[in-house]
């Protein structure tokens, strides 16, 4: 579904990603883990076309997308739910969701809206409220709901558990499993190692812009290098 080869990217003269290879197969959950500053968010920005790649190639569904614009990538169905949610605080919950189908999924907007409300009944209760007044957990639901409105063919979730209470984190991971059970491949970018490894089939550990470890979730959990990658020990 998604294939990345020798990907390089950065900001100005500073290279953050220094040659990444990765793959997300159809209908699997793949976790990208790593400490702060390892390059996780940069990777997501390059995948969604917000930041240009300086080298390497990205293929989505067999097509090169490393020089595509953000809107072309959304149109192809690679949907990125960003870190920090990036919802539209001045727009109502409904308007936020409607804009989720700005570029893709517009013909079935009404049906998809119902689907999101079925998944997140809380959002229906808050439908006319400005999104900026929602709680952190509700905003995260809204961000994921907005992503679902575009009928994703692959969903990138960047730190969906950030800033949520342990109970909400649990719910969030359950939800991701449910979305995936319907056949949606998910690229999960997280700092929450234990729960991510429980959920994902495979994982990549990012360290200083390269992969320190890659493999099945079970292998990685037992790998002594995991601690080193996180704690620099």
């Amino acid at each position: 579904m998604l294939e990345v080869r020798a990907l390089r990217a950065g900001y100005g003269g500073v290279e953050v990603l220094r040659g990444l290879d990765m793959r997300v197969g159809s209908s699997e959950i793949v976790a990208v883990l790593g400490a702060n500053g390892a390059g996780k968010t940069t990777l997501n920005k390059v995948l969604s076309g917000v930041l240009p790649a300086s080298g390497g190639e990205i293929r989505f569904d067999g097509h090169r997308i490393d020089s595509a614009t953000a809107q072309e990538i959304v149109a192809a169905g690679l949907i990125h739910v960003p870190e920090g949610r990036k919802i539209f605080p001045n727009l109502s919950v409904r308007e936020n969701l409607e804009l989720g189908s700005y570029r893709r999924g517009r013909p079935r907007r009404r049906a998809n809206l119902e689907r999101v409300f079925a998944t997140f009944p809380r959002l229906r209760e808050r439908i006319a409220q400005p999104a900026g007044t929602l709680s952190g957990g509700e905003q995260q639901m809204l961000a994921i709901g907005r992503g679902m409105m575009a009928e994703p063919r692959l969903l990138i979730l960047d730190e969906p558990s950030l800033g949520l209470s342990p109970l909400l984190v649990e719910q969030m991971f359950t939800l991701i499993a449910r979305l995936n059970a319907d056949g949606l491949p998910v690229l999960l970018v997280e700092q929450n190692v234990v729960q991510s490894l429980d959920l994902a089939a495979r994982a990549y550990i990012l360290e200083n812009g390269v992969y320190a470890i890659a493999g099945s979730a079970d292998e990685i959990r037992d790998n002594p290098d995991l601690k080193r990658a996180y704690l620099g020990m």
């Binding site: 953000a70 959304v74 990125h80 919802i87 539209f88 570029r103």
Partner: peptide, 15 residues
């Protein structure tokens, strides 16, 4: 209105 307040979020929905 979305672009007015949240440009990155706007780009990520394909605006």
């Amino acid at each position: 209105r979305a672009v007015a307040r949240e440009k990155l979020g706007a780009r990520l929905v394909g605006i």
